[in-house]
Amino acid sequence: MKLNKRQSAILMSAITTVLLVTILVGGLLVSNDRIVTNLEYRNLPPSLAHPFGTDWLGRDMLFRTLKGLSISIGVGLIAATASVIIAVCLGIMAATMGRIADAVISWLVDLFLSVPHLVMLILIAFVVGGGMKGVIIGLALTHWPSLTRVIRAEVMQIKAADFVQTSRRLGKSRWFIAIKHIFPHLVPQFLVGLFLLFPHAILHEAAVTFLGMGLSPHQPAIGIILSESMRYLSTGMWWLAFFPGLLLLLVVRAFDLIGDRLRSLVDPYRANE
């Protein structure tokens, strides 16, 4: 069966979603006793019993990685959703609440875009007290600016459209126009934004944690796993970093892929191919 572009996009998205949900749920279901210290099986290279090998405390790396990824995906999802919500609110406010609101929000966007994500993220995470809460708040507060710009432009454009102007003259309220005319146009931006923000959030989470300023060391987050493994790389234990890193890459790429496919579906110039 030959699939058209729209069908294949949906299929790809479905497969990647299943993969991600599997990792998330799998990680959550793995009980903590699967990754307890087991000094008998220390430093084992990958084998059938331990496909990802074990670490210097004899913990199974496959389960640790799954657990770590599911924490990362969870953190990423919460942070990306919060970011998107911030972006939508600010974008709509900038476009509808007059010149001063627009100037203030645009200034904020420029400010956040001019400072590197990671620096800002570390600062915020540190200020709110670190840990998982710190990382989530930090991620949420740093990833909204570019989407805000997109949403602001979109709302401005729709607001000026003839059909919105006409709706006003047909006696419709601002509220009606916001909900019925403008909002439906933002849903695709919302979804695509979510999927494109997620990989950023998850990578930054891993990076901050890797640097020791994110999640606490007893949570097996992917960043922690990677940073710990650094110390053992020189002793030839390559699997400690390789498999977790690869899986992280796959997950990030999967989200990126979904975002791209969705974007090509909502792009009117490519939508009918």
Binding site: N4, Q7, I10, N272, E273
Partner: peptide, 12 residues
């Protein structure tokens, strides 16, 4: 003639 999406995923 043009390929066009009609309802959801069907192309006509």
């Amino acid at each position: 003639s043009f390929k066009k999406y009609s309802k959801g995923l069907r192309q006509e």
